[in-house]
């Protein structure tokens, strides 16, 4: 009984702590928001399980401790049908909840833009240790390391990602967007994001393209700064570049 009480108490405290904390800042895309929500939900589900384990261990160590040199046996309870049964049911239920939402639903949410026409398509190519970008239909490409990847806000942006043929696997990751896809030689992968937030590498370090798959010597330096701007500003920038 005491143990159950401690468990409930711990769980409530931990859940409140979780909800009041801002774990990772706001995501800058719609998809990123789904992912963050999924993360929070999984945390909320995991906390009671974890507090249960902690409570049990703590309680047992204090309550059922038997010191002294004499060996004393406990009552031989080998199993308990109801406990095993309800444990199985509860873990299965939890698993099913996790599988359906955020698992299945989350995947559907991430894929819901697949059929739509993208506002902007960017072809990304990785090579050691640099990214290059080509705005499809805009006659602008970025290559140099100091360039900034400029993207419009409030748009559906589709990235086609690949790596050069004789190169190695990279991974295209923008932490602020929560999106990541590998750049594999000979294979084109794609990823959609709906940008929702204006931001800049100089203000938030997560506005950067970072290689996330170990690719050799300068792996940690293989990044590009990202700037998300208003669509009008973006078009202006494109026009300036083309000129």
């Amino acid at each position: 009984m005491t143990a159950a009480l401690i468990w409930v108490l711990l769980t409530v405290v931990a859940e409140f702590a979780l909800l009041s904390l801002n774990l990772f800042g706001d995501a800058a895309t719609k998809q990123g928001q789904f992912i963050d929500d999924a993360f929070i939900l999984l945390m909320a589900l995991a906390i009671p399980v974890f507090t249960f384990v902690v409570t049990m261990i703590g309680y047992v160590v204090i309550k059922f401790r038997a010191d002294g040199d004499e060996l004393e046996d406990a009552a031989p309870v080998r199993t308990h049908k109801k406990w095993v049964g309800s444990w199985l049911i509860w873990t299965t239920l939890l698993t099913i909840v996790v599988i359906i939402y955020p698992g299945y639903v989350g995947v559907q949410e991430l894929r819901e833009t697949h059929e739509e026409e993208a506002d902007l398509t960017v072809n990304v190519t990785g090579r050691r240790w640099q990214w290059s970008y080509e705005y499809e239909g805009r006659a602008v490409s970025l290559f140099a390391k100091d360039d900034m990847l400029i993207l419009p806000n409030d748009s559906l942006i589709r990235f086609y990602v690949t790596s050069e043929d004789q190169d190695v696997i990279h991974s295209f990751w923008i932490p602020a967007f929560r999106m990541k896809i590998d750049a594999v030689p000979g294979l084109t992968t794609k990823f959609d994001v709906n940008t929702t937030k204006i931001g800049n590498f100089n203000d938030d370090v997560n506005f950067r393209v970072q290689c996330a798959e170990l690719c050799g010597r300068d792996h940690s330096l293989m990044f590009t700064r990202v700037k998300v701007v208003e669509p009008a500003e973006f078009e202006q920038w494109i026009a300036d570049q083309a000129a």
Binding site: V60, F64, E72, W83, V84, W87, L88, T92, T95, G103
Partner: peptide, 30 residues
């Protein structure tokens, strides 16, 4: 693969149940 992976948590849960069920009302020697 996500579904299959999540399913592993069920048998793993049994192992936790066993560990916690064993120490419950036992004579623990720390």
């Amino acid at each position: 693969f996500m579904v299959l992976t999540e399913l592993i948590s069920i048998p793993t849960g049994i192992i936790f149940l066993s560990a916690l069920g064993t120490v419950w009302r036992s004579k623990l020697r720390l």
